[in-house]
């Protein structure tokens, strides 16, 4: 499934979507960057409540398909800009991490 399809199916808010064609191959949930760095896999959709600009760095380094910021945590203008600069797909939702993952599990 592509990131664009994920956006459409889950009704996510695409704060930055430079690569809608990226393939989502797995999912990862976590709010501690080091755990994520150690365990998330390339091509994953990362579900988190973290919303500082470090999420862009983690996404780039792991080569994630996208980051989904949940629970209405939202991101600042600055973080959205960093995501665009680093070519990171950054999506937001009001839904909880649990609900988001439960929906994703239907497709992945």
């Amino acid at each position: 499934m592509t990131v664009q399809e994920l956006v459409d199916r889950l009704g996510l808010d695409p704060v930055a979507l430079p690569h809608p064609e990226y393939e989502v191959t797995s999912g990862y949930v976590g709010d501690m960057p080091s755990w994520v760095m150690g365990n998330a896999t390339e091509g994953c959709a990362w579900v988190t409540i973290l919303n500082n600009r470090n999420i862009a760095a983690v996404a780039v380094l792991i080569e994630m398909a996208c980051v989904i910021v949940t629970e209405g945590a939202g991101v600042s203008e600055e973080v959205a800009q960093v995501a665009m600069e680093q070519e990171v797909n950054l999506l937001c939702t009001e839904k909880s991490s649990f609900d988001t993952v439960a929906r994703m599990a239907e497709f992945l």
Binding site: D31, M32, P33, S34, M37, L50, N54
Partner: peptide, 10 residues
């Protein structure tokens, strides 16, 4: 802020 998980050096 999500850091300090004690996973850095490992």
């Amino acid at each position: 802020a999500g850091f300090g998980a004690g996973m850095g050096l490992p």
